[in-house]
Computed example of a mutant assay.
Amino acid sequence: MDIAALSIMMNHSQVKQQANISVMKMAMNTAEQNNVNLTKMLEQSVQPHIGSKIDVKL
């Protein structure tokens, strides 16, 4: 195998690796944002006065 072909193959593998890392970073950012949004939604839905007392009749 000649040097030029080896250089091209190495460059292509580096480009593929960089693309994979970029996609993974985007997925991680999306997951992080989804977690933040879910946490905010859960915090807003908490109603401390509901369920704190139980009426019992004997």
Rank of each mutant, 00 (worst) to 15 (best):
T30I: 10
M41F: 14
H49Y: 12
V46T: 03
M9A: 14
V56H: 03
G51S: 04
V46G: 01
N37W: 02
V46H: 10
Q18V: 04
N37C: 03
M1T: 10
V46M: 04
Q14K: 12
G51P: 00
V56Q: 02
N37T: 03
T39H: 07
S13C: 04
S22V: 01
L58Y: 11
H49F: 13
Q17W: 04
Q44K: 08
M24C: 01
N11S: 11
M10D: 08
N29A: 11
N34C: 07
T30N: 14
S7Y: 05
L58A: 09
N29P: 02
T30V: 09
L38W: 01
M10K: 10
K57Y: 02
Q47T: 09
I3L: 02
S52I: 03
H49I: 13
A4Y: 00
I54E: 15
K40I: 08
M28E: 11
T39Q: 11
M1Q: 07
K57I: 13
A19D: 10
V56Y: 10
Q44W: 03
E32H: 12
M10S: 02
Q18F: 02
V15K: 15
M26E: 14
N11T: 12
P48D: 04
Q18I: 04
M1L: 06
M41K: 15
A5F: 01
I54W: 06
A4R: 13
N35F: 07
Q17G: 00
D55N: 13
N29M: 06
I21H: 05
V56M: 03
H49K: 12
I3G: 06
Q44M: 01
M26W: 11
M26C: 01
M24K: 14
N35K: 10
N34H: 01
A4C: 02
A4L: 13
I3R: 02
L42V: 10
Q17P: 05
M41L: 15
H49V: 12
M24N: 11
L38E: 13
V36M: 13
D55V: 13
N35W: 04
A4I: 14
D55Q: 13
